[in-house]
């Protein structure tokens, strides 16, 4: 049996004095899409942040291995270069910084890390324009400031665009579906489907079933009060849609 791409064991983490993760166990093999669902405050975003190495979180117990190495020992930028991508729930605006410039810098940082030659401006534009077409984004986005003045939906599309250009081994998408209208949801879902491949894994953090109508997950996990309280196949998401979370919360208490 091969080791899973991502392996989380008994993960505990705090923010300030509050324990937000209380023993997460999760294995995500390459080639699979896992959905993590759960009510507000259950720890979904915290889990994404801890995986990406966001400052402010302290891991108090447990381990995370990614491609067989200790992920928690790496600083955030090295996790990214190793192929961990976080799609932000609230992508931040960076005024004056060209969207294309950041993306190319990101791509080249990863390529340098893999001892691959950097892409020049021409090849980069060819690549990014093809991906933008897929995301139905206007080319003017390239020269705009990073997320500057973007609508909520535009920001989310931009996250998926970045993901498609960077082609990470593990994409953790934190509520990428929230705030999207139906059309934008379909575009974002199509983008996610494009990345699906036997060597990659995708973790979708979401409240709702509707994204999963377009991206069928291999596994669904329910997070409540910092723990995974139920795991199942795609049918679990449908059940949650019908019954809500309350029936599972009692188990977690």
């Amino acid at each position: 049996m091969t080791t899973p791409l991502l392996c989380i064991r008994d993960l505990h983490a705090r923010v300030a004095d509050r324990e937000v993760l209380k023993g997460i166990n999760l294995e995500v093999p390459a080639g699979e899409v896992h959905a993590i669902m759960g009510p507000n405050g259950s720890g979904k975003s915290s889990l994404s942040h801890v995986l990406a190495g966001k400052p402010g979180y302290t891991v108090t117990r447990g381990s995370v291995t990614f491609k067989g190495q200790d992920l928690l020992a790496l600083p955030p930028e090295e996790r990214a270069r190793e192929g961990v991508f976080l799609g932000f729930q609230y992508p931040v605006e960076i005024p004056g910084v060209n969207n294309a410039y950041l993306l190319r810098a990101a791509l080249n940082a990863a390529r340098r890390h893999r001892n691959e030659p950097e892409v020049d401006a021409f090849d980069f534009l060819t690549l990014v324009k093809a991906r933008m077409q897929l995301m139905r984004m206007d080319e003017s986005f390239l020269s705009r400031g990073v997320n500057e003045g973007f609508s909520g939906g535009e920001k989310k599309r931009n996250e998926i665009l970045q993901m498609l250009v960077l082609e990470p081994s593990l994409a953790v998408l934190d509520e990428t579906d929230s705030g999207l209208d139906i059309d934008a949801l379909k575009v974002v879902a199509a983008g996610i489907q494009t990345l699906r491949s036997p060597e990659r894994a995708i973790v979708l953090v979401t409240h709702y079933q509707r994204l999963l109508d377009h991206v069928t997950p291999d596994r669904v996990h329910v997070l409540a009060r910092g723990r995974i309280v139920r795991s199942g196949g795609p049918e679990l998401a449908l059940e949650l849609e019908r019954r809500g979370y309350d029936w599972l919360l009692d188990d977690a208490a």
């Binding site: 930028e77 990214a80 976080l86 931040v92 993306l103 940082a109 890390h113």
Partner: peptide
């Protein structure tokens, strides 16, 4: 902003 900084780090840029 810490948020801006982390966003860039998460995309693989050095500090």
């Amino acid at each position: 902003s810490e948020e801006q900084l982390f966003y860039c780090l998460q995309r693989g840029l050095s500090q």
